[in-house]
């Protein structure tokens, strides 16, 4: 059941994104930025967390989750330590995933050659 929910929700987000790509002049980079901002906005109103509880990876795997994590980090940071906490909070929540992406990206970029 969890798998089906993840599949349906994640698939739906991607299908909606595909409509945007096919029907507009936006590029994939634009689409990723839009989704992150959308995720952040939904998270601000507290609706993203329930989505991750219901749909699991269906809501956690899309990049919109990145916006959610950043936003929650800012909110929690502010509650803990005011403005300084808000500035720290965003990146500290996302640090693990971002760090992994940079380290893997560097390693693979160094080891492999583009094939085209």
């Amino acid at each position: 059941m969890n798998f089906l929910l993840a599949f349906l929700f994640g698939g739906t987000i991607c299908a909606l994104g595909q409509i945007v790509l096919d029907k507009s002049k936006l590029t994939q980079a634009d689409l990723m930025v839009i989704l992150v901002v959308l995720g952040s906005l939904i998270s601000t109103f507290g609706f993203y967390e329930p989505l991750t509880r219901i749909f699991g990876a269906g809501a956690m795997a899309p990049v919109s989750n990145f916006g959610h994590i950043l936003t929650q980090g800012v909110i929690q940071g502010f509650n803990r330590a005011g403005f300084l906490g808000a500035l720290e909070g965003g990146l500290s929540q996302a640090a693990a995933v971002l760090g992994a992406a940079i380290v893997f990206g560097f390693g693979i970029g160094f080891l492999f050659r583009p094939k085209g």
């Binding site: 790509l21 590029t27 994939q28 583009p114 094939k115 085209g116």
Partner: peptide, 18 residues
Amino acid sequence: HHQTAERTFRFPTELGVQ
């Protein structure tokens, strides 16, 4: 050359662009 033109005019070739 395909790869050099992609670099000059578009995206890196390994990027999953449709």
